[in-house]
Design a protein around this nucleic acid. Structure first.
Length: 566
RNA sequence: GCGCGGUUAGCUCAGCUGGAUAGAGCGCUGGCCUCCGAAGCCAGAGGUCACAGGUUCGAAUCCUGUACCGCGUACCA
């Protein structure tokens, strides 16, 4: 069965043919108020001039040619030429049944591989709230693409190579407290790293460069220490990832590309794409390479011969193309790297590496009220501390509201609710705006929050249990306003998910789910299942089933568990 | 200088492939649990959509300019 929009578009098209309009693509949109119908079309404004009439007259002709019947209950011409389309309740019921007979809820499926590069923290540092956005947005995209049929390769491109290791090695030799390292590896690494950046002498700085070079040349001792730092870091990262439900397919860090870098640069020089400038190797651009790229060359080798992250990223593109032949590659990082990726993409164009669509999914900066976050100055909030605080707060609420649940379940609920609240706080806002960290906002549990959405779902499931309802959608159409509103909203799911995916903005889905949850609350305050019988009961039970499936599926795509009880 | 963002209700923000009276949350005021979960629902107060032009039947949305804020802008990532 076609989706609602497809059906309406088709009806309009055939009406247009009847009237004698040619080659139009009539658009229909959801209305914002039920008095204006369920859908409306503005096509008459655009077409009137060519047809030699006024929009209103044309709308009247189209309305007359639109057959009311099984789909359309009523067509009205309104205002200066709007065409308001009212769907029949019976059709809405059938459309809902068809949508929920499909495990993918009519979300269009796409073939192809997408590589998603997200989270990507630096080794030897504790994850802080600044890492939240990439991780949480990246995970949601991971799930969205997966749901839409893509083959997803999630790659955690960790910062496990480069100059910070020389510094760490020098710091280790000078200051490490092994007992402290045993206790809290990352804490100790971070302590000595901060100490280095605050206190290192010039001699130590030089030594650090030497140690970095030795590491990259394969020095056994340095490699051993390096491995130790990474292992400790991965334990730390995993503890956060398991709470956030994140898992990667591969974790090729920057180190993985080390051997490819010098041959790559030599190749670029040989091809004439790169050139030597001021002792360094650059890929120069002019304005034909992209807006703002003039005089912004891409650096691929420092004058001391070392590679830098541009080099690594270029090698990474090549490796990903060769390994997975992706159709699309997403880089989920903050706004500060926009120029870098613009340069990287322009460089791949010059090289003819056009097999994949490379997309920088960027998000705004998270700062603290005291200013920008900085690991060095200690002006950070650790992710674990934030999650723990949110879980503690959730626990208080669960204890208060759901004392009847067993203790261990309350603990699980608190963990799910607290972590989800934090996750949703970040997911639900415009990713491209900068935000100032706010404890109360991150841990809010009322209003437009994850707990609100989870509550909506849990309550639907509770109704199903208490009323012993089947978890299926029959074809009975809605009757009252709340039922119609919920139905038409649920029918929009198949267009919302691809929209969120194509914009690479999970917040589009989050916002939709919020409106669904509100509609659900209104619905069961107006339409009681208990005590209802016959067709009315079947219809309401269907809405409960359809809404709970939509919420659990949608929440799942955001990485939020849809609990049965909370 | 150039590039990329931001500016909408007291506060935090949606809405930006142009559409009919600009929406939420928090806070504030007032209702709703003998009734399937009140982490909820209903009602109310609250807005020159930064400013100025332009395009259009129609602009918070598109274009141009201005102001203020943030970020980036060759050897860190």
């Amino acid at each position: 069965m076609a989706t609602v929009v497809e059906s309406l578009t088709q009806l309009l098209q055939s009406a247009a043919d009847t009237v004698g309009l040619e080659a139009i693509i009539p658009q229909v949109n959801a209305t914002k108020s039920p008095d204006l119908g369920d859908y409306q079309s503005n096509c008459c404004f655009r077409l009137a001039k060519a047809a030699g009439t006024s929009p209103r007259e044309l709308a009247a002709k189209l309305a007359a040619a639109l057959p009311t019947g099984p789909v359309l209950a009523k067509v009205e011409v309104a205002g200066p030429g709007f065409l308001n389309l009212f769907l029949s309740n019976a059709y809405l019921g059938q459309a809902l049944q068809a949508q929920f007979a499909d495990p993918k809820l009519h979300v269009p499926q796409t073939q192809g591989t997408v590589v998603i590069d997200y989270s990507s923290p630096n080794v030897a540092k504790r994850m802080h709230v600044g890492h939240l956005r990439s991780t949480v947005i990246g995970l949601a995209l991971h799930k969205l693409y997966d749901f839409c049929g893509w083959t997803v390769v999630a790659d955690n491109h960790i910062g496990d190579w480069g100059t910070q290791f020389g510094k760490l090695i020098v710091s280790w030799d000078a200051w490490v407290d092994l007992a402290a390292f045993e206790q809290d590896p990352i804490g100790e690494l971070q302590r000595i790293y901060v100490k280095f950046s605050q206190e290192a002498t010039d001699a130590q700085q030089d030594l650090a460069r030497e140690e970095t070079a030795k590491l990259q040349a394969g020095d056994a001792r340095n490699l051993g220490l390096w491995k130790r730092f990474i292992d400790a870091s991965m334990v730390e990262f995993e503890s956060i990832y398991s709470r956030l439900g994140v898992s990667f397919d591969v974790t090729y860090g920057e180190s993985h590309y080390n051997d490819m870098l010098q041959p790559l640069v030599e190749g670029l020089l040989a091809q004439g794409v790169a050139e030597v400038s001021e002792g360094a190797v650059i890929i120069p651009f002019d304005k034909s390479d992209g807006k703002g790229l003039k005089d912004q060359p891409f650096l691929v080798r420092k004058k001391d011969g070392a590679a830098l992250y541009g080099t690594t990223d270029l090698a990474t593109v090549r490796f990903r193309l060769d390994t997975w032949a992706p159709k699309r590659v997403l880089y989920v990082t903050d706004t500060r790297q926009q120029l870098h990726f613009k340069q990287l993409f322009a460089a791949t164009n010059k090289l003819g590496w056009n097999q994949a669509e490379l997309v920088h999914v960027w998000f705004g900066l998270l700062s603290l009220p005291e200013g920008n976050m900085s690991s060095r100055s200690g002006n950070v909030i650790h992710l674990k501390a934030l999650l723990d605080a949110a879980v503690d707060k959730a626990r208080e609420i669960v204890d208060l509201k759901s004392a009847e649940l067993p203790d261990d379940e309350r603990a699980l609920v608190a963990e799910a609710v607290g972590v989800s609240a934090v996750r949703y706080a970040d997911l639900s806002q415009n990713p491209q705006a900068n935000v100032v960290f706010d404890w109360d906002k991150m841990m809010a549990m009322e209003g437009n929050t994850a707990p609100f959405l989870m509550y909506g779902h849990a309550r639907l499931r509770s109704i199903q249990r208490k009323e012993d309802l089947q978890h299926v959608v029959t074809g009975h159409g809605p009757v009252n306003d709340a039922e119609r509103e919920l139905t038409t909203l649920l029918l929009r799911f198949p267009s919302v998910v691809p929209a969120a995916l194509e914009a690479n903005r999970p917040s589009i889905l989050a916002e939709y789910l919020f409106t669904v949850a509100r509609s659900v609350n209104r619905f069961y305050s107006q339409s009681r299942i208990k005590g209802s019988v016959g067709e009315e009961r079947a219809m309401r039970a269907s809405l409960v089933a359809a809404a709970s499936m939509t919420l659990s599926t949608g929440l799942g795509l955001l990485g939020i568990p849809a609990l049965e009880r909370m």
